[in-house]
């Protein structure tokens, strides 16, 4: 077994100035603006339920999902807005889902934790910590069984690694990988906290990649505030998964700037100073500065991206606000395909 490695892009090759990086920056800025809008709308009472925003972790979604191909399948936990958006889900319909509207990606039946957009390869946000890891493992088996080259990406947090389904999924993925039947990339979004419990307090062994390797799955750590580093690892690893049908795990070391959820106001588990310190390693800032220094990205370009992102987020809010609520008859649809409940004739 290899030692834990921590990949970080120290040099930038010429490809760094490819237009794709500008797109990634644009997407990261948009995710930030979108999440800020969701927090605002939550405060205004327009968004119900739980709301877990992604601010600070943008490089994890964009660095990996920009490296996959059409047809690949993505599973996520409940902090799932960025994954859906990066895969191409319509921001208006994502926001409408948060507003509980008929035009939402899940018809207003899922909400923030259960975004779903099969057309774009997003097979769901899931709300029970660790539960979806087994689903992703089975999905990967199915893709190989059907003799496709497609792979699965499965996001989860450091907090998911202490629940039984994590261990069952890892063991089965390790077993199936030996037969080349489990092309799945597990991505640990290690933001240091299981809700409000820090990694030192929730994991007996804090080297998370080492824990994955215990199941005979290759794993490596990456500085996930640096999207160059994330993407670099992703390109290599995804190629390998596609070729071998074996699972792989990236431990993306990141930090969330917002509370665990919108109701996490006081954040007694960390200090303001700690958050401020991490803001110096804002993934958007890191990419922006690099493109500015090396590729000549101008302040005007950045300003335009910022404005454009704000505008798109505002449009999404407007769309969500103006969309109709689900028809009451929708209460009874999609429970099962067959033998389902019948809506009452009077509704």
């Amino acid at each position: 077994m290899a030692e834990t490695t921590r990949t970080s892009a120290t040099t930038i090759d010429s490809a760094a100035c490819a237009p794709e990086w500008t797109e990634i920056l644009r997407q990261m800025i948009f995710i930030r603006r979108f999440e800020e809008a969701t927090e605002r709308e939550f405060r205004r009472g327009k968004i119900g339920g739980y709301l877990h925003v992604y601010s600070g972790q943008e490089a994890v979604a964009t660095g990996i999902l920009s490296a996959i191909q059409k047809g690949d399948i993505v599973f996520s936990g409940y902090r799932d807005h960025a994954h859906a958006l990066t895969l191409g889900a319509d921001p208006c319909r994502v926001m409408a889902e948060l507003f509980g509207k008929a035009t939402g990606v899940s018809k207003g039946k899922g909400g923030s934790m259960h975004l779903f957009d099969a057309e774009h390869g997003f097979y769901g946000g899931y709300g029970i910590v660790g539960g979806h890891l087994t689903l992703a493992t089975g999905a990967a088996y199915a893709l190989r069984y059907q003799q496709t080259e497609r792979i699965v990406v499965c996001y989860f947090g450091d907090g998911a690694m202490n629940i039984g389904s994590f261990h069952e999924a890892m063991n089965i993925a390790g077993l199936w990988g030996k037969q080349g039947m489990c092309p799945v990339l597990f991505v640990i979004e290690n933001n240091g906290y299981a809700m409000g419990t820090s990694i030192e307090r929730h994991s007996a062994l804090t080297d998370l990649s080492a824990r994955v390797r215990a199941y005979s799955i290759q794993a490596e750590k990456v500085d996930a505030q640096d999207v160059f580093a994330v993407r670099g690892v992703a390109d290599r690893v995804i190629r390998q998964i596609r070729e071998t049908g074996k699972p792989y795990c990236i431990e993306a070391v990141t930090y969330r700037f917002s509370g665990h959820g919108a109701a996490d106001i006081l954040q007694p588990y960390r200090t303001k100073d700690e958050v401020e310190e991490h803001r110096h390693r804002d993934p958007i800032m890191i990419l922006r500065n690099r493109l500015r220094e090396i590729c000549g990205l101008s302040d005007d370009d950045v300003k335009k991206m910022e404005d454009d992102a704000g505008e798109r987020a505002a449009q999404a809010v407007k769309f969500a606000e103006e969309s109709p609520v689900p028809d009451p008859r929708e209460l009874f649809t999609d429970v099962v395909a067959e033998h389902g409940p019948q809506p009452e004739t009077e509704s």
Binding site: T134, T137, G138, A139, A142, L143, G164, E168, N171
Partner: peptide, 18 residues
């Protein structure tokens, strides 16, 4: 393996993929 959650959960993923 003796892992009912693993069996049931992977089956859900398989079923979702056809």
């Amino acid at each position: 393996p003796i892992a009912e959650a693993g069996m049931a959960g992977t089956a859900v993923g398989m079923a979702m993929l056809g």
